[in-house]
Simulated scan of single mutants.
Amino acid sequence: MHISFPSCMPEYCARDLVLAFPAHVDDRSVQCAITAEALEDHFGARSLREDDLVQAFLAHRYQIEQAAKQLLEEVGAKPVLLHSGFFRFSA
């Protein structure tokens, strides 16, 4: 399984309080997302404001993408959502 992440900006979803970002698994596009709580708890986001969440994501993009890659390897080419608890127990 080949997993890569395009360098596009994440998309903010205010309803779900997540930042969504794409992954390419083999030749399929798969949606990944990280919760605002995870960005605050583990990546220094100052608030739930979109700008603060995006800034934290960009500053820690590699770590977040590696976490998404780990989950994608476990579940296959299915959407993944990174919660705060994932980082609490994987660090």
Rank of each mutant, 00 (worst) to 15 (best):
M1K: 10
S7G: 09
C8N: 13
C8M: 10
E11P: 02
Y12N: 01
C13L: 15
C13A: 14
A14Q: 09
A14L: 09
R15L: 14
V18S: 05
L19R: 06
A20W: 01
F21H: 03
F21C: 03
P22N: 01
P22G: 02
A23T: 01
V25P: 12
D27N: 12
D27P: 00
D27M: 12
V30C: 12
V30T: 04
V30E: 07
Q31R: 03
Q31L: 09
C32K: 04
C32N: 01
C32T: 00
A33T: 08
I34H: 10
T35A: 06
A36Y: 10
E37A: 09
A38L: 01
E40A: 10
D41A: 09
H42M: 03
F43S: 09
F43Q: 11
F43K: 04
F43D: 12
A45H: 04
A45W: 07
R46D: 05
S47L: 03
L48Q: 11
L48P: 00
L48E: 01
L48R: 15
R49I: 03
E50T: 14
D52S: 04
L53Q: 01
V54M: 00
V54H: 00
V54I: 13
Q55T: 14
F57Q: 00
H60N: 13
Y62A: 07
Q63L: 04
Q63Y: 09
Q63D: 05
I64C: 01
I64D: 07
I64E: 13
K69V: 07
K69H: 08
L71K: 11
L71R: 15
E73R: 03
E74H: 08
G76H: 08
K78F: 12
K78V: 12
V80A: 13
V80S: 13
L82P: 03
H83V: 08
G85D: 07
G85A: 05
F86Q: 12
F86Y: 15
F87N: 12
F87H: 11
F87D: 06
F87I: 14
R88N: 10
F89Q: 14
S90T: 13
S90P: 11
A91D: 10
